[in-house]
Write a protein that binds this DNA or RNA. Sequence first.
DNA 1: ATCAAATGTTAACCTTGGCTAACTTTTATT
DNA 2: AATAAAAGTTAGCCAAGGTTAACATTTGAT
Lengths: 129, 129
Amino acid sequence: MKSSVKLKLTSSLEDYLEVIYLLTKDKGEVRITDIAVFMNLSKPSVNRAIVSLKENALLEHERYGTIKLTKDGLLLAKEIYFRHETLTKFFVNTLGIDPDIAQNDACKIEHIISHQTLNKLVAYMNKSI
Amino acid sequence: MKSSVKLKLTSSLEDYLEVIYLLTKDKGEVRITDIAVFMNLSKPSVNRAIVSLKENALLEHERYGTIKLTKDGLLLAKEIYFRHETLTKFFVNTLGIDPDIAQNDACKIEHIISHQTLNKLVAYMNKSI
DNA sequence: ATCAAATGTTAACCTTGGCTAACTTTTATT
DNA sequence: AATAAAAGTTAGCCAAGGTTAACATTTGAT
């Protein structure tokens, strides 16, 4: 899992991107309200994040319209999601953490863990199969 | 490792507390400049953090004087440091991460990992001895 | 004892990322 | 087609946590 998107986002913006990815997987596109409801945040907060992600060319969004990830946005979102899944799997399968706590921990750690550590975690899990 | 200090600090304040603990271990007390140099932050930033930690009764500090952890402060600092060490050990010994990267990751994750996950990590490491 | 250097503090500024209130635009109902 | 509801936006507020510049205090050297 390698990304050509060099951009370094804040944890917050990575969260938004990941949620947009998840909500987009079914419907293809998503609205600000969907994101706000899902993340339990206000619409203005989401709005501002969308502007920021758009400025980074990670999504497309016309005033009053729907949101769609760009190629870069999708790539980066998938990478973040991969980190999330990797961590969750490790916590649940290897450590035996409760799934909801594992999700929660993964959700925070995914933004700050280094590439090397994540890679080694993947290697470690594969080894012990 | 259980703490009776219920206080929930920000990651930033936890960092300060941990550094104060480390710098205090030798000398017994520490100055704002020591902390600023060690953390590579400005003295006003450190100053404000000290005020905040003092308000939470985690340290003692008189104007222009030295800083000393209170009983609560020491307890909490030790707990944070334990999390740090646990994570570093796991990264280095179990995953084979480079020590400096392990330190760095531990330094961020120590603030956000759940109790359950940390406990399970400890148990896991003890099991595989 | 004086004065320069080191240390500490204060004030004011910036950015991020939440929020609410108020407004605009779009959508849907009748 | 009119209008109510839903969706989106804007403006302005707040807190945290960084910064620099300027000032105050303490310490150390002569």
